[in-house]
Design a protein around this nucleic acid. Sequence first.
DNA 1: ATGGGCACCTGGCTGC
DNA 2: TGCAGCCAGGTGCCCA
Length: 271
Amino acid sequence: MPELPEVETTRSGVAPFAVGRVIEQVIVREARLRWRVPPELPTRARGQRIQSLSRRAKYLLFGLGNGTIILHLGMSGSLRVLSRGSPPMAHDHIDIVLDDGVVLRFNDPRRFGSLLWTPDDPLQHPLLRSLAPEPLSDEFSDAYLAKAAKGRKVAIKQLVMNSQVVVGVGNIYASEALFRAGIRPKRAAGRLKPAEFAALVKSIKQVLREAIRQGGTTLRDYVNPQGMPGYFRQKLFVYERAGEPCRVCKTPIRQFTQGQRSTYFCQQCQS
DNA sequence: ATGGGCACCTGGCTGC
DNA sequence: TGCAGCCAGGTGCCCA
C-alpha cells in the first residue's frame, strides 16, 4: 500500500476533479472490504456536493454537506480518475460518479481498504479519534518523539510505525528514515540519544516530503489517480535492496524481520 | 500500559 | 504445467 506520500499524491491528484462537484451516485460492486461498506452510504452521498478532500494519517476525507466519506486504501488500494463508461476491471469495487461524468474508481485486490460514512466530525470517528500527530506537522518534533520513546523497550522502527506515536510512517519510509538518520532499526526506542531523536525526526520529514514530490513509491500495485506509478523507488537507499551494495559505502544491505515486517539496513552506515 | 502475534485477502513469484 | 509455500506500501484486536 500506499503510505502517507502515496495517499497524499492520491489526494492532490483527485482533488481538482472532485472538489466542487456533485456526487451523482455511488456504485458499490463489492461491499466486503476491511469493514463492510455501510449500506446507507450511497443514499447519503447522492446529490451532495464535495466541499473538501483532505487527509488525516492515511485516511482520505471527502467532506460533503451532510457528513464525510472516509476512504482508506489499505495495502493494495488505489483511487483513479476515469470517465463514465470505462468498463470496470477486476477488483474495481467502488465508483463515485460525479455530475460531470468523471468517475472516481476504487480498486483494491486485497480488500484491506475501507470506505466508511460518518455524519459527524470525522476526526472524532473511532478509527481517527486517537491518532497521533501528523509527521509533517510542527507538533512532531525532537522533544515530542523523545518523550514518546521515554522508557519504551520496543525497537525504534516499530515505535515510529505506531500510529499512537506518529501517523503515516509505514514499512518503506521507516527503514529509509532510519538509514538517513544512521540509526539501526533494532535499537530500543528509549535508548536513543537526543541528537538521534533530532536526526530521526528530520529524516522522517525529509523522506516523506521527497517521496510526495516524486509522486510516491511504486513497488507493485500503486498507481496515482492518472494511472501512473510513483518515481521514488529509484531514490530508495535500503528498502527491497537486500544483498545490493549500500549507495553510500557499498556494504551489502541486510534484511531481517521485525514484527512480521521486513526491515532493511546498512550495518556500516547505521549504528 | 506495553509488547507480541494473528487476522483480514488476493496475486505474483519461486522452487520442487 | 501444476501446485505448495512464501511474500507484499496496513492496522485493529486479543492475549500475556
